[in-house]
Nucleic acid binder design. Structure first.
Lengths: 140, 140
DNA sequence: TAATAAACGCAACTTGGTTGCAATACCATC
DNA sequence: GATGGTATTGCAACCAAGTTGCGTTTATTA
């Protein structure tokens, strides 16, 4: 299943001349298939059996994918990192929705805030993050 | 020092008929004196000597102050809670600035976003949080 | 001032994430 | 296709932030 995503993930990494490892491909493919931001723990659960990966490796792969711009991460109110594959949209301007009941996080990709609030003198903005908290469709 | 803030803090709690304890007063006063959001750890450091408080108690006091609306908390990219006394502004609409170098967090109180981005069907927004990341005046 | 319910302090625990290091897997080159 | 060097992996141990249980102390109310 998701063979095409595996291929797509592999191709994304190879194209940039980075080392293609099974872990990177599997995780990136998994995140590409996902509509929302998933936690380290959730990813670990899905990689059972012969696909299982050491938790440390998983952390490192996620860190690597993040640093190299394949994915991005958000920290929720439960202080847990959640990861999502980057669409080709501007990576420095995205919004998230966080459900206050089930802690699920989804990305609101279609928003295009160019909003930049007034900052004190000397402050330099680099990135604006907007999080809407509330109840998701299932919890509402 | 800050006697008036101690008094103010005490008065805030007493006025609502809640139990006035030295820990609550000290911490609320400390937060009232602060222009930015401070972490549990920072608060602990400032309460040395005869003012020192057990870390667990500190966590519990902060939790209590938060639940009772005296303060609010933000989680930064370092996954650490930071606390700030609530101004009398609308508590459900505030913005923060987070320095990507020194992790300092300040509150941008004067912003008045009424912005509510389009959500998927069935989703119910409760609160909008906007975080601007970048370099603070000292780190820029 | 005594009764009592809420707060506090201590110790032990949990969870999410990190570090060091030896073993293994990519991939470039032969 | 074999080989070697470097990047990645897995394991074990570790760390930091925050939580839980429980006996002791303290703030309030009568």
């Amino acid at each position: 299943m998701f063979i095409s995503l595996q291929k797509q993930a592999e191709e994304m990494i190879r194209r940039r001349g980075e080392r293609v490892t099974s872990g990177r491909v599997r995780i990136l493919a998994l995140l590409l298939a996902e509509q929302r931001a998933v936690s380290h723990h959730e990813i670990e659960e899905r990689l059972q059996g012969k696909y299982r990966l050491d938790r440390v490796t998983l952390y490192r792969v996620l860190e690597w994918l993040n640093e190299n711009g394949y994915i991005h991460r958000v920290v929720g109110d439960d202080r847990v990192w959640r990861f999502r594959a980057n669409a080709d949209v501007n990576p420095h301007q995205h919004a998230h929705f966080e459900c206050t009941r089930c802690t699920r996080v989804i990305c609101l990709d279609d928003m295009k805030t160019e909003y930049s609030p007034p900052l004190p003198a000397g402050y330099r903005p680099q990135q604006v993050e907007l999080t809407v908290k509330g109840l998701c469709a299932e919890c509402a």
